[in-house]
Protein backbone atom coordinates (compact mmCIF):
# COMPACT_ATOMS: atom_id res chain seq x y z
CA UNK A 1 0.00 0.00 0.00
CA UNK A 2 2.76 2.45 0.89
CA UNK A 3 4.33 1.56 -2.45
CA UNK A 4 1.07 2.54 -4.11
CA UNK A 5 1.16 5.92 -2.38
CA UNK A 6 4.83 6.34 -3.25
CA UNK A 7 3.97 5.81 -6.90
CA UNK A 8 0.61 7.42 -7.48
CA UNK A 9 0.06 9.86 -4.62
CA UNK A 10 3.63 10.87 -3.89
CA UNK A 11 3.19 14.05 -1.86
CA UNK A 12 6.78 15.11 -2.37
CA UNK A 13 6.47 14.90 -6.15
CA UNK A 14 3.08 16.60 -6.00
CA UNK A 15 4.52 19.45 -3.93
CA UNK A 16 7.43 19.88 -6.31
CA UNK A 17 5.18 19.92 -9.37
CA UNK A 18 2.58 22.22 -7.78
CA UNK A 19 4.14 25.28 -9.42
CA UNK A 20 4.00 23.76 -12.90
CA UNK A 21 0.43 22.57 -12.39
CA UNK A 22 -0.65 25.97 -11.07
CA UNK A 23 0.72 27.63 -14.22
CA UNK A 24 -1.12 25.02 -16.28
CA UNK A 25 -4.34 25.57 -14.39
CA UNK A 26 -4.06 29.30 -15.13
CA UNK A 27 -3.79 28.57 -18.87
CA UNK A 28 -6.80 26.24 -18.65
CA UNK A 29 -8.77 29.01 -16.94
CA UNK A 30 -7.66 31.50 -19.62
CA UNK A 31 -8.82 29.11 -22.34
CA UNK A 32 -12.18 28.76 -20.57
CA UNK A 33 -12.49 32.55 -20.36
CA UNK A 34 -12.16 32.72 -24.14
CA UNK A 35 -14.21 29.67 -25.09
CA UNK A 36 -17.24 30.02 -22.80
CA UNK A 37 -18.09 33.71 -23.41
CA UNK A 38 -17.11 33.34 -27.07
CA UNK A 39 -19.27 30.25 -27.48
CA UNK A 40 -22.23 31.92 -25.76
CA UNK A 41 -21.85 35.07 -27.88
CA UNK A 42 -21.67 33.33 -31.24
CA UNK A 43 -24.19 30.72 -30.10
CA UNK A 44 -26.66 33.50 -29.28
CA UNK A 45 -26.00 34.98 -32.72
CA UNK A 46 -26.69 31.61 -34.35
CA UNK A 47 -29.87 31.12 -32.34
CA UNK A 48 -31.17 34.58 -33.23
CA UNK A 49 -30.30 34.10 -36.89
CA UNK A 50 -32.14 30.79 -36.93
CA UNK A 51 -35.17 32.34 -35.25
CA UNK A 52 -35.43 35.48 -37.36
CA UNK A 53 -34.02 34.55 -40.78
CA UNK A 54 -36.26 33.31 -43.64
CA UNK A 55 -36.67 29.56 -44.00
CA UNK A 56 -34.20 29.15 -46.85
CA UNK A 57 -31.46 30.68 -44.71
CA UNK A 58 -32.24 28.65 -41.59
CA UNK A 59 -32.03 25.45 -43.61
CA UNK A 60 -28.54 26.41 -44.76
CA UNK A 61 -27.57 27.40 -41.23
CA UNK A 62 -28.64 24.05 -39.84
CA UNK A 63 -26.46 22.28 -42.44
CA UNK A 64 -23.56 24.56 -41.48
CA UNK A 65 -24.02 23.77 -37.81
CA UNK A 66 -24.14 20.04 -38.54
CA UNK A 67 -21.04 20.29 -40.71
CA UNK A 68 -19.11 21.81 -37.80
CA UNK A 69 -20.50 19.16 -35.47
CA UNK A 70 -19.40 16.38 -37.82
CA UNK A 71 -15.77 17.29 -37.02
CA UNK A 72 -14.33 15.71 -33.91
CA UNK A 73 -13.29 18.76 -31.85
CA UNK A 74 -9.67 17.57 -31.84
CA UNK A 75 -9.66 17.39 -35.65
CA UNK A 76 -11.04 20.94 -35.88
CA UNK A 77 -8.40 22.08 -33.39
CA UNK A 78 -5.49 20.42 -35.21
CA UNK A 79 -6.78 21.67 -38.56
CA UNK A 80 -6.94 25.27 -37.37
CA UNK A 81 -3.74 25.34 -35.33
CA UNK A 82 -1.62 23.43 -37.88
CA UNK A 83 -3.50 24.52 -41.00
CA UNK A 84 -3.76 28.31 -40.58
CA UNK A 85 0.04 28.83 -40.73
CA UNK A 86 -0.04 27.47 -44.30
CA UNK A 87 -2.35 30.39 -45.15
CA UNK A 88 0.23 32.75 -43.65
CA UNK A 89 -1.88 33.30 -40.53
CA UNK A 90 -0.15 32.41 -37.29
CA UNK A 91 -2.31 33.24 -34.31
CA UNK A 92 -0.71 32.83 -30.88
CA UNK A 93 -1.42 29.29 -29.57
CA UNK A 94 -4.00 30.36 -27.00
CA UNK A 95 -5.94 32.29 -29.64
CA UNK A 96 -5.77 29.40 -32.13
CA UNK A 97 -7.15 27.04 -29.49
CA UNK A 98 -9.74 29.64 -28.53
CA UNK A 99 -10.94 30.03 -32.12
CA UNK A 100 -11.21 26.28 -32.78
CA UNK A 101 -13.01 25.42 -29.54
CA UNK A 102 -15.28 28.47 -29.77
CA UNK A 103 -16.39 27.39 -33.26
CA UNK A 104 -17.17 23.94 -31.90
CA UNK A 105 -18.95 24.90 -28.73
CA UNK A 106 -20.94 27.81 -30.20
CA UNK A 107 -22.88 25.37 -32.39
CA UNK A 108 -24.04 23.57 -29.24
CA UNK A 109 -24.83 26.76 -27.33
CA UNK A 110 -26.67 27.95 -30.45
CA UNK A 111 -28.93 24.90 -30.66
CA UNK A 112 -29.67 25.05 -26.94
CA UNK A 113 -30.59 28.73 -27.07
CA UNK A 114 -32.71 28.14 -30.15
CA UNK A 115 -34.58 25.39 -28.32
CA UNK A 116 -35.08 27.88 -25.48
CA UNK A 117 -36.55 30.48 -27.83
CA UNK A 118 -38.78 27.85 -29.46
CA UNK A 119 -40.01 26.73 -26.04
CA UNK A 120 -41.92 30.02 -25.65
CA UNK A 121 -45.52 29.97 -26.79
CA UNK A 122 -46.25 32.03 -29.94
CA UNK A 123 -48.94 33.83 -27.95
CA UNK A 124 -46.15 35.45 -25.93
CA UNK A 125 -44.81 36.94 -29.15
CA UNK A 126 -48.25 38.10 -30.18
CA UNK A 127 -49.04 39.60 -26.80
CA UNK A 128 -45.73 41.43 -26.68
CA UNK A 129 -46.07 42.76 -30.20
CA UNK A 130 -49.63 43.90 -29.54
CA UNK A 131 -48.41 46.06 -26.67
CA UNK A 132 -46.31 47.91 -29.22
CA UNK A 133 -42.91 46.28 -28.61
CA UNK A 134 -40.72 45.77 -31.70
CA UNK A 135 -39.10 42.43 -32.59
CA UNK A 136 -35.85 43.27 -30.81
CA UNK A 137 -37.60 44.53 -27.68
CA UNK A 138 -39.90 41.49 -27.65
CA UNK A 139 -36.90 39.18 -27.80
CA UNK A 140 -34.99 41.09 -25.16
CA UNK A 141 -37.72 41.67 -22.63
CA UNK A 142 -40.15 38.81 -23.16
CA UNK A 143 -38.80 35.83 -25.08
CA UNK A 144 -35.16 35.54 -24.03
CA UNK A 145 -35.63 35.89 -20.25
CA UNK A 146 -38.15 33.03 -20.26
CA UNK A 147 -36.45 30.98 -22.96
CA UNK A 148 -33.01 31.11 -21.35
CA UNK A 149 -34.49 30.10 -18.01
CA UNK A 150 -36.08 27.06 -19.65
CA UNK A 151 -32.74 25.77 -20.97
CA UNK A 152 -30.54 26.72 -18.02
CA UNK A 153 -29.65 23.08 -17.17
CA UNK A 154 -28.59 22.47 -20.78
CA UNK A 155 -26.56 25.68 -20.87
CA UNK A 156 -24.78 24.59 -17.69
CA UNK A 157 -24.27 21.14 -19.23
CA UNK A 158 -22.65 22.57 -22.33
CA UNK A 159 -20.46 24.83 -20.21
CA UNK A 160 -19.21 21.69 -18.46
CA UNK A 161 -18.44 20.18 -21.88
CA UNK A 162 -16.64 23.38 -22.91
CA UNK A 163 -14.35 23.26 -19.86
CA UNK A 164 -13.60 19.58 -20.54
CA UNK A 165 -12.89 20.46 -24.15
CA UNK A 166 -10.05 22.79 -23.17
CA UNK A 167 -7.98 19.75 -22.16
CA UNK A 168 -7.54 19.14 -25.91
CA UNK A 169 -5.30 22.21 -26.00
CA UNK A 170 -2.55 20.05 -24.50
CA UNK A 171 -2.33 18.17 -27.80
CA UNK A 172 -1.26 21.28 -29.73
CA UNK A 173 1.38 22.12 -27.11
CA UNK A 174 -0.56 24.78 -25.23
CA UNK A 175 0.84 24.56 -21.65
CA UNK A 176 -2.53 23.89 -20.00
CA UNK A 177 -3.16 21.80 -16.87
CA UNK A 178 -2.98 18.44 -18.65
CA UNK A 179 0.14 19.39 -20.61
CA UNK A 180 1.96 20.63 -17.52
CA UNK A 181 1.02 17.44 -15.67
CA UNK A 182 2.64 15.42 -18.48
CA UNK A 183 5.73 17.62 -18.28
CA UNK A 184 5.96 17.17 -14.52
CA UNK A 185 5.47 13.43 -14.92
CA UNK A 186 8.41 13.36 -17.32
CA UNK A 187 10.60 15.38 -14.97
CA UNK A 188 9.94 13.19 -11.92
CA UNK A 189 9.36 9.91 -13.74
CA UNK A 190 6.36 9.49 -11.49
CA UNK A 191 2.64 9.58 -12.38
CA UNK A 192 1.58 11.54 -9.27
CA UNK A 193 1.33 14.88 -11.14
CA UNK A 194 -1.07 13.26 -13.63
CA UNK A 195 -3.22 11.95 -10.79
CA UNK A 196 -3.12 15.38 -9.14
CA UNK A 197 -4.19 17.02 -12.42
CA UNK A 198 -7.08 14.55 -12.77
CA UNK A 199 -8.12 15.34 -9.19
CA UNK A 200 -7.94 19.06 -9.95
CA UNK A 201 -10.25 18.62 -12.94
CA UNK A 202 -12.64 16.71 -10.68
CA UNK A 203 -12.47 19.36 -7.96
CA UNK A 204 -13.20 22.00 -10.60
CA UNK A 205 -16.02 20.17 -12.37
CA UNK A 206 -17.73 17.95 -9.81
CA UNK A 207 -19.56 20.94 -8.23
CA UNK A 208 -20.75 21.89 -11.70
CA UNK A 209 -22.08 18.36 -12.26
CA UNK A 210 -23.93 18.57 -8.94
CA UNK A 211 -25.34 21.97 -9.91
CA UNK A 212 -26.59 20.58 -13.21
CA UNK A 213 -28.32 17.77 -11.35
CA UNK A 214 -29.98 20.26 -9.02
CA UNK A 215 -31.15 22.34 -11.98
CA UNK A 216 -32.41 19.24 -13.78
CA UNK A 217 -34.34 18.05 -10.73
CA UNK A 218 -35.64 14.66 -11.88
CA UNK A 219 -38.28 12.46 -10.32
CA UNK A 220 -37.18 9.43 -8.32
CA UNK A 221 -38.05 5.86 -9.02
CA UNK A 222 -40.82 4.40 -6.86
CA UNK A 223 -39.10 2.31 -4.22
Amino acid sequence: MSEFFQTFLNLEVMAESAGLLARGLLVTVEACLIVIPGGLFFGAGLALAQTLAPRSVTGLLSWGVDLVRAFPPLVLLVLIVHGLPFLGIEPPPLLGVGIALTINTSTYYGEILRAGILSIEPTQWEAARSTGLGTAATLRHVILPQGVRNVLPDLAGNTLEAVKLTSLASVVALPDLLRMARVAQGVHFNPSPLILAALLYLALLWPLVRLIRRLGGRAVLPA
Binding site: L160, K164, S167, L178, R182, Y201, L202, L208, R210, R213
Partner: peptide, 13 residues
Protein backbone atom coordinates in the same frame (compact mmCIF):
# COMPACT_ATOMS: atom_id res chain seq x y z
CA UNK B 1 -20.89 11.95 -11.72
CA UNK B 2 -17.13 11.36 -11.74
CA UNK B 3 -16.99 10.29 -15.36
CA UNK B 4 -19.25 13.14 -16.38
CA UNK B 5 -16.82 15.56 -14.71
CA UNK B 6 -13.64 13.98 -16.10
CA UNK B 7 -12.44 15.13 -19.54
CA UNK B 8 -12.08 11.98 -21.68
CA UNK B 9 -8.58 12.98 -22.77
CA UNK B 10 -7.43 13.28 -19.14
CA UNK B 11 -8.80 9.82 -18.42
CA UNK B 12 -7.10 8.40 -21.51
CA UNK B 13 -3.76 9.96 -20.61
Amino acid sequence: DVFRAMPPLVLLV
